[in-house]
Design a protein around this nucleic acid. Structure first.
Lengths: 182, 182
DNA sequence: CCGAGCCGTTCCGTAAACGGAACAGCGGAC
DNA sequence: GTCCGCTGTTCCGTTTACGGAACGGCTCGG
């Protein structure tokens, strides 16, 4: 005992809790799920209790049998990296890698106050913003654009640019960054 | 039986490819990333080549150092809730619930061929599409719109509407559905 | 030309995740 | 009462993912 594995480990225990919850929601016993998923009972037991550091293969076998994506047990409130600035608070939701370019999709919140500046990116990088609520003023420093709810902005971000909320309302928007392949 | 998903292939190679892409985008060498992430070079090498079955701890160490969520390298075609039709294949990425409206953010692929029809939604629902690649023709049946890479479409979807790829290239886009609060 | 310093891959001993079996605890059948 | 079937946990031998070191390949610099 006491051999307690690194308790402060990342979300291993959180992952275990979610799997146990999902299993019990389905009325499955540990033994049954282990058999259906093709893993040992010891493996699943340790996994649910957070005393193991599961393999991707193991996790996939279990989550697939539960009928949920891997992200359902992994992505946690504390798990996703967030970029914070004076006014902008952006959470990276997804990364798409296509043949022509890589896309990063963020959910963005811009708080009222002075504009937040962002340095120039590599040549060819474009930003695409869809505003959900509030009024956003963003784009190149010398030619900012404005958009309200439901509207769309696009600019080439190889020059310094800024983000600002117009008025007192916080702006909520989705931000898509496109990095062309070299 | 039980509609077993591909048990052997859980996308280990796909995960490796994404990690390698993310690493190269950042201009990091394999050795450097391995040192920064605190894992062995052999581990990272095998991981990128798909010859290993990484543990959650290893994956987390690497993705955290790359500054992306685990979902960025895991989210695969399998497992995620997906809406499929004749031509359109959409994956739900995120749901935002704000005070004014609910937003559903999809990643969408439209394959070449005849248009896919979609019935009218509730009054006030709007759709917002940002095209990544290919040329998309979509919108109300009587007034469809066209957009190419980097362009944006918006229409009110309280009437029947359609989606179609123009030309032979598959269309990749992000689709934002906005449901106003009653 | 040759060594220095990187690159990424392969080799190898060790630590640990794995599945099967044995275990204790509980509830119902007879 | 005993037995059975089930629960979830623990023990244990096997498999394998791990990191350090050694390796071949490439690009510089002297």
């Amino acid at each position: 005992m006491a051999a307690a594995p690194p308790a402060g480990d990342h979300g291993a225990e959180e992952v275990g809790r979610r799997i146990r919850t999902l299993r019990e929601e389905r009325g499955l016993s540990l033994s049954t799920l282990a058999r259906l998923a093709g893993v040992g009972k010891a493996t699943l037991s340790g996994l649910e209790n957070g005393t193991r550091n599961p393999t991707l293969e193991t996790l996939y076998a279990v989550t697939a049998q539960l009928g949920v994506p891997l992200t359902a047990v992994l992505s946690g409130p504390a798990g996703t990296p967030t970029v914070r600035g004076a006014a902008v608070d952006a959470t990276l939701l997804e990364v798409f890698t296509d043949t022509d370019a890589t896309y990063e999709l963020y959910r963005m919140r811009v708080s009222p106050g002075p504009p937040q500046l962002s340095p120039a990116h590599q040549a060819g990088v474009t930003e695409h913003v869809t505003v959900f609520s509030g009024v956003l003023r963003a784009g190149p420093l010398d030619a900012p654009l404005t958009a309200g709810p439901g509207e769309y902005l696009r600019w080439t971000s190889d020059v310094p640019h800024s983000y600002a909320a117009v008025g007192d309302e916080q702006v909520r928007a989705s931000l898509l960054l496109r990095y062309p392949r070299d």
